Amino acid sequence: MASDFAIIIPARFASQRFPGKPLAALRGAGGQVRSLIQRSWDAAQAIAGSARTWVATDDERIAEAVQSFGGQVVLTPETCRNGTERCAAALDVLGDIAPIIVNLQGDAPLTPDFVVRDLVSALEADADAVMTTPAVRCSETLYHHLVADQKQGRVGGTTIVFNSARTALYFSKRVIPHISETVVDAHRHVHLHLGAYAYRPDALRAYAATPPSSIEQLEGLEQLRFLETGQRIRVVPFDPIEWDCIELNNPEDIPAIEEVLRQRGMR
């Protein structure tokens, strides 16, 4: 298992669905309140250590919040369209910090440490892949959370389909594949895409130099730029995790995330 990797947490203030999201307060077990960006930092630090983790942002409010709890910040341009471009911009500032860069998105504080480590191992083992990313088979409760978001017209988590070679076929903010209501145990056929990626630095730089793709712009999913340009994304599948890895996409997600924090005893 490789250990030579660094984590970059891209964070922006001007989210369309949830402005100021990185500074949203999340109450953990015992009532302790920490911002989303601090909980994301804590998750990354448990994996790579504080010396190998940076928050990449273009907003001074986020930078000040990170510095207040002792985190490392790298300032990136406002022109970054998404987290992958922001990670590439961070490398322009930081230089060659590691042979593998992990993008741990700042709205996924419940991502387990073993997921990131497995992404790094899978990328090292697969020379044909430009990046690796996780797919978690839905639990019944997580599946119903995604379906409820869709029925309410909210953009919830991202789902993914992939082939037997574990190559990504498509990502969507809709629940895919479509499953008839008559199918028993429908949740077993749906995989949640967690907000984490492992890339080689050259792939990041090439991505930033490529114009956004049409599907990427329609779905609002940055990873689709790799697929539309014919590049291989290696999927790392996981069985349902002990807890539901709900991402903070909308203010309505806060109670569900806080319930997971409470159940796991995370202060």
Rank of each mutant, 00 (worst) to 15 (best):
S3W: 15
I7T: 03
I8H: 05
I8M: 06
I9C: 07
I9V: 14
A11L: 02
A14K: 07
A25V: 13
G31F: 04
V33M: 07
V33A: 03
R34L: 14
S35N: 11
L36S: 02
I37S: 01
Q38T: 08
R39L: 14
S40D: 09
S40C: 15
W41N: 02
A44C: 04
A44H: 02
A46K: 15
A48E: 08
A48G: 08
A48W: 10
S50D: 08
A51R: 11
R52V: 09
R52N: 12
R52F: 07
W54F: 15
D58V: 08
D59W: 01
D59F: 04
E60W: 01
R61F: 02
V66F: 08
G71E: 01
G71H: 03
G71T: 04
Q72K: 03
V74T: 05
V74K: 00
T76L: 03
E78M: 08
C80N: 07
R81G: 12
T84Q: 00
E85I: 06
C87M: 01
A88M: 03
A89P: 01
D92K: 06
G95F: 13
D96S: 14
I100A: 01
V102T: 09
Q105H: 05
G106S: 14
G106N: 13
A108K: 00
A108Y: 04
T111Y: 00
T111P: 07
D113P: 13
R117N: 00
D118F: 06
L119N: 01
V120K: 02
L123F: 04
L123H: 01
E124V: 12
D126V: 05
D126T: 08
M131R: 08
T133H: 08
P134S: 12
R137F: 09
E140F: 04
L146G: 06
L146P: 07
V147Q: 09
V147A: 10
A148F: 09
Q150F: 03
G153P: 11
V155Y: 05
V155I: 11
T159F: 12
T159E: 14
T159K: 12
F162N: 01
N163Q: 12
A165C: 12
A168R: 03
F171H: 10
S172P: 14
I176E: 00
S180R: 13
E181Q: 08
T182C: 05
V184Y: 13
A186N: 10
H187I: 02
R188I: 12
H189V: 07
V190E: 06
V190R: 01
R200L: 06
D202C: 11
D202V: 11
D202E: 15
D202A: 11
D202S: 15
A203N: 10
A203Y: 14
R205A: 03
A209T: 09
A209M: 07
A209D: 11
T210F: 03
S214Q: 06
Q217P: 07
Q217A: 04
L218M: 14
L218N: 11
L218H: 15
G220M: 10
G220Q: 11
R225H: 12
L227N: 03
Q231H: 14
Q231T: 10
V236E: 14
P237V: 13
D239G: 12
D239H: 10
P240C: 08
E242P: 12
E242Q: 14
W243P: 04
W243E: 06
C245T: 15
I246C: 00
E247I: 01
E247L: 01
L248P: 00
N250H: 02
N250V: 10
I254L: 00
E259P: 09
R264D: 14
R264L: 15
G265S: 15
R267W: 13
